[in-house]
Computed example of a mutant assay.
Amino acid sequence: MTSYLEIYTLATGERQVVLETEDHIEAPNFTRDGAALIVNGGGRLYRVTWDAEVPALSPIDTGFATALNNDHGLSPDGRTLAISHKTDGESCIYTLPLEGGTPVRVTEKTPSYWHGWSPDGAQIAYTAKREGSFSIHVSAVDGSGETRLTGEEGHDDGPDYTRDGAWIWFNSDRSGAAQLWRVRPDGTDLQQMTRESSVNWFPHPSPTEDHVLYLAYPEGTTGHPPGKDVALKLLDPESGESRELVRLYGGQGTINVPCWHPDGRRFAFVRYA
């Protein structure tokens, strides 16, 4: 299988292939200066300078953490990486410097899958299974004060903060097939935001706060599998209207984590062939 790391520009619909590789890579994040992308592959993290003459996968030293899944991302100041590493058979969240180093454990309990960082840098949002089903949790960056925001009504996943910190968006199948939802960071004001025939995952609010990018699977899809004909769609949270941007072969690994460029005018994704 070939992986294609791409950047999509909203204003023009232009797609730029940054990197084509026979390695299986997933889940791109932009660095805060917008100059590079962070991707996962084979349990490791890599940096790709996307405007380099010859972009390539440059390994990031994650110390003992060599069994990473694709749930990773950067702090608001761009200095710290959150990673999700398999510990004793279950995913656990750690942090380390962007340039690499020894990971520091964050979540005491497992499984925990990082997905979002609050704009003030004080909290992280993650998917975790504590009692029954997977639900949305938040804690301080050091793991203290873990709080469960959603109940056991279904499988909740992919939490990501809005730029102003007022909402956490996520996907949930509590109403049937997975759709997009949002909730306040204190767990109040739960709202369903899409009611489509597609099965919707991994909402990512834009830095400009005027739309939300998400992954749409075909009707009837269970979970978030790889190797599917999917679409990337853009939702206007005010009007509730969405539009399709890209159709591709992908799914798991395409946009699992925050993937917007800091300017909010473009985003990164991975497709496969």
Rank of each mutant, 00 (worst) to 15 (best):
R163N: 11
S3I: 01
A166D: 14
S206D: 11
A36R: 06
P237F: 02
Y161A: 03
A231M: 11
R47F: 14
F30W: 08
S175C: 09
W260V: 01
L234Y: 03
D156T: 04
A273L: 07
T254C: 06
G220K: 02
G151P: 12
A56E: 15
P97E: 10
G145C: 08
V230Q: 05
V54S: 02
R148A: 11
N171F: 09
I83K: 03
D229L: 09
R174C: 13
P218C: 09
R271F: 11
H85N: 15
E20H: 07
T162Y: 06
V104A: 12
L19Q: 04
R182M: 13
G223R: 13
I83H: 03
I93D: 03
T31W: 13
Q179N: 15
A82Y: 14
G158P: 05
H155F: 11
G63H: 02
R163K: 10
G165H: 14
Q16L: 08
P28Y: 03
G187Q: 07
T49A: 15
D120A: 02
D229F: 08
P28Q: 03
N29Y: 14
D120E: 11
D160F: 00
L10T: 02
Q192C: 14
T12Q: 06
Q191P: 04
R174Y: 04
G34L: 04
P226I: 00
P262G: 06
V270S: 09
E6F: 02
C92W: 00
N40D: 11
A82S: 10
T110W: 07
L235S: 01
S133E: 15
G176K: 08
S84H: 13
A122Q: 14
G165D: 14
E196N: 07
V18G: 06
V48F: 11
S239G: 08
A166T: 12
T49R: 14
S144N: 12
Y8P: 02
P258D: 01
H261D: 07
S84M: 13
K86R: 14
V18D: 10
D189A: 12
H85R: 08
T221W: 10
A216S: 13
V199K: 00
T110Y: 10
V106Q: 05
L68Y: 10
I38Q: 03
V199F: 01
G101L: 01
R130C: 05
M193V: 11
R79L: 15
D156A: 08
R266M: 11
D51G: 00
Y46T: 12
R130H: 09
C92H: 00
R243P: 02
W117F: 13
I60Y: 04
E196Y: 05
T194L: 06
D164T: 00
A35T: 05
G73P: 10
Q123L: 12
E6I: 00
T162L: 07
F134A: 03
R47Y: 15
G158L: 02
R105N: 09
A67N: 15
Y46N: 13
Q179S: 14
G158E: 06
V54K: 03
D229Y: 09
V48Q: 09
V246Q: 06
T95E: 09
V54D: 06
P218A: 08
D164S: 00
P28I: 03
T49S: 14
V212H: 01
A35L: 05
S84R: 10
